[in-house]
Structures are given as C-alpha cells and as structure tokens.
C-alpha cells in the first residue's frame, strides 16, 4: 500500500501550485493509468486523510481512468487493450508490449473555489 504516500505527494504538489497562483482548490483532477500500479479506491481513501489539516482539507480528488493503449505492429495503429491480462491487439490478436498510455499518474487540473 503506497497510495498514502502518493496521495500526500498529490496534496503537496496541488498546494504548491495553488499558493504560487494564489487560488483556493475545490478539487484536484488526476489521470490514473491502469498500469500505474496505483489502486484508485485506496488512493481516494488516502487523499482524504492526506488533506486533513492542510488548506486542501475538504477538497475532492477527481480521477480519470486511463486505459492501456498499445501500438499494434500489424494494424499499424494504437489500440486499447481489452484486458490487462492479455497484451495483444483486440482486433487482429497480434501480441505487443509497446505501451503508449496507461502508466499515467498525472495531475491535470485544479478546480478552483468560486
């Protein structure tokens, strides 16, 4: 379980950005890849704890799931994996381990208090 330390990093980074721009944060938007190694539910739970006692207390974490996108060498284009237990093209079945998306763990936006 490393989600708490990741949640604390998210709070720190969001807070730093908010202070720099002199804004107050209502929610933090995050892209979370299926291959990031981070469990969404554990992260959401940890975020609340990590916010406690900080200016972000009471703010929300809005998670956008990013599916695994691989490059299919046969179809010659990016494809979304049907299952993370099966790294092959969902259309032609060719095996591929060239991952384009799915490892994201990125803060994309801060939702500001009105």
């Amino acid at each position: 379980m490393h989600e708490l330390s990741i949640a604390m990093s998210i709070v720190d980074m969001a807070q730093e950005e908010a202070e720099r721009r002199n804004v107050r944060v209502e929610a933090v938007h995050l892209e979370l890849g299926a291959l990031s190694g981070v469990v969404k539910e554990a992260l959401l739970f940890s975020f609340e704890i990590a916010c406690d006692g900080t200016p972000l207390q009471g703010s929300r974490l809005v998670v956008k799931d990013v599916p695994i996108e691989v490059y299919c060498p046969v179809c010659n284009m990016p494809k979304i994996l049907a299952s993370m237990q099966w790294f092959c093209c969902p259309d032609c079945g060719a095996q591929t381990s060239e991952v384009i998306h799915g490892k994201e763990l990125v803060i994309t936006a801060l939702e500001l208090k009105q």
Binding site: I6, S9, E17, A27, V106, I107, T108, L110, E111, L112
Partner: peptide, 13 residues
Amino acid sequence: PRLLEVRKNVLKQ
C-alpha cells in the same frame, strides 16, 4: 467549475 490546467507527474521527483 473554474478549471486551472496544470500538468504535473506525481512521481516526477
């Protein structure tokens, strides 16, 4: 909602 776009990799450090 007012959105402020940022793009920060959480594991950057």
